[in-house]
Amino acid sequence: MKRRASTLALLVSLTAGCSVNSLLNQMEAESDKSIDLACDCTNVFPDRAACEAQFGSFLSPFDRECLEDALARDKKASKASLECIVDQHREYNDCLEEMLDCNDADSWQGCQDIISANDCPQLPAEVQTALQPCGKNDDD
């Protein structure tokens, strides 16, 4: 499930020493943690594979190399947006760890408002345009 970046240029550090690639890795790790927390509720999901299919990783619908290339068009703005998303996802996972009760299907509801893309810096139009073709196409 973990993918390695194939574009060496994206390993260039950004202002605080974190690259876009590193932030994408952190986003994926936080997403995987959310999946693990939800899928540990075996009384809700009798089969872990079915659970994982239901909650696919945040980045799984996207072509990773395409994402990296698009975000690299404005590394500083991309970094600010990704850092915010990672922080939100960490806070969400902390909430899930505290609130999630596998015997209460509504227990996670209190955590849903934590993740809001509108609360994070928006990506520049150039980056957003470059991201549009990054969805995976299984027909290729």
Score class of each variant (00 low, 15 high):
residue 1 M to C: 02
residue 3 R to Q: 10
residue 4 R to P: 02
residue 11 L to P: 05
residue 14 L to C: 14
residue 14 L to N: 13
residue 15 T to L: 07
residue 16 A to K: 09
residue 17 G to L: 08
residue 19 S to T: 13
residue 19 S to D: 09
residue 20 V to I: 08
residue 21 N to R: 10
residue 26 Q to K: 11
residue 28 E to P: 04
residue 29 A to L: 11
residue 35 I to F: 01
residue 37 L to D: 02
residue 38 A to R: 09
residue 39 C to W: 06
residue 41 C to M: 02
residue 42 T to D: 15
residue 45 F to N: 08
residue 48 R to V: 08
residue 49 A to I: 08
residue 50 A to P: 02
residue 50 A to F: 00
residue 52 E to M: 03
residue 52 E to I: 10
residue 61 P to N: 03
residue 64 R to T: 07
residue 68 E to T: 05
residue 69 D to M: 13
residue 71 L to Q: 08
residue 72 A to W: 03
residue 73 R to F: 02
residue 73 R to V: 11
residue 74 D to L: 13
residue 75 K to G: 13
residue 78 S to T: 11
residue 81 S to C: 12
residue 83 E to N: 14
residue 86 V to A: 12
residue 86 V to P: 12
residue 88 Q to S: 13
residue 89 H to V: 11
residue 93 N to D: 13
residue 94 D to I: 14
residue 94 D to V: 10
residue 94 D to M: 09
residue 94 D to Y: 01
residue 94 D to A: 14
residue 95 C to P: 10
residue 96 L to R: 06
residue 97 E to W: 02
residue 97 E to F: 03
residue 97 E to I: 07
residue 100 L to M: 08
residue 104 D to G: 11
residue 105 A to N: 06
residue 106 D to N: 07
residue 106 D to T: 05
residue 108 W to Y: 01
residue 108 W to C: 07
residue 109 Q to H: 02
residue 113 D to C: 07
residue 117 A to Q: 05
residue 118 N to H: 08
residue 118 N to S: 15
residue 118 N to I: 00
residue 118 N to G: 06
residue 120 C to Q: 09
residue 120 C to M: 03
residue 127 V to K: 06
residue 129 T to Y: 02
residue 130 A to K: 12
residue 131 L to T: 00
